[in-house]
């Protein structure tokens, strides 16, 4: 896909999204005008601004047709082939991290995440890898659970139980 095609697709997608927003407000039973005795309706602000979004997308489309934007004249690939791997792997790795957090819990997910980046992608030595794989969850536990008292997702009950042991130990030792 060239930059030129990408700009067209993006402008159309944004136009449709803006129209969708307008429809959402209009059919969502929100008043987009003046409510007598009460003032502007709840839908006024988002509705008319969404209309503005739609109009600016139309303007971009018009500029695309006339070749006014630099992107509309650019026929290079949208994402360079040599970087497409790195960028998509990074984005997908976050997706997998979030999925894993839901199922096996934050700490195990982070260990796998770190191992993947440091060892598999970065090809660093075992010392650096293990340092990151073990250091990160420990640091995260101390910062978020101990200092900020946040209960991070622990995943399915099986995995959650394992962590309760750590928490119990902490409470037994310090409180």
């Amino acid at each position: 896909m060239t930059v030129r095609t990408a700009e067209l697709i993006m402008a159309i997608a944004l136009l449709l999204a803006s129209l969708g927003l307008m429809a959402n407000i209009y059919f969502g039973d929100l008043n987009i005008g003046w409510v007598p005795g009460r003032g502007p309706g709840a839908g006024m602000w988002p509705f008319w601004l969404s209309l503005g979004m739609a109009l600016s997308s139309v303007a971009t489309l018009f500029r695309w047709v006339t070749g006014a934007t630099p992107e509309s004249r650019n026929t290079e690939p949208f994402v360079a082939p040599e970087t497409i791997f790195l960028v998509s792997v990074s984005a997908i790795s976050i997706l997998v991290l979030l999925l894993m957090m839901t199922f096996i819990g934050t700490y195990f997910a982070l260990m796998i995440f770190m191992f993947f980046f440091v060892r598999v992608l970065g090809k660093h030595g075992w010392v650096a890898t293990m340092g990151m794989v073990i250091g990160t969850p420990v640091f995260v536990y101390l910062l978020f659970e101990v200092a900020l008292t946040k209960y991070l997702p622990k995943g399915l009950p099986v995995f959650e139980e394992m962590f309760l042991a750590v928490d119990n130990l902490r409470y037994a030792l310090f409180y």
């Binding site: 990074s90 790795s93 976050i94 991290l97 979030l98 957090m101 982070l110 995440f113 770190m114 993947f116 980046f117 440091v118 992608l121 970065g122 090809k123 660093h124 650096a128 990151m132 990160t136 995260v140």
Partner: peptide, 12 residues
Amino acid sequence: TMLTPVIFTLCV
């Protein structure tokens, strides 16, 4: 490859 996962972790 060391910095990126740390930043992503902090974001999440």
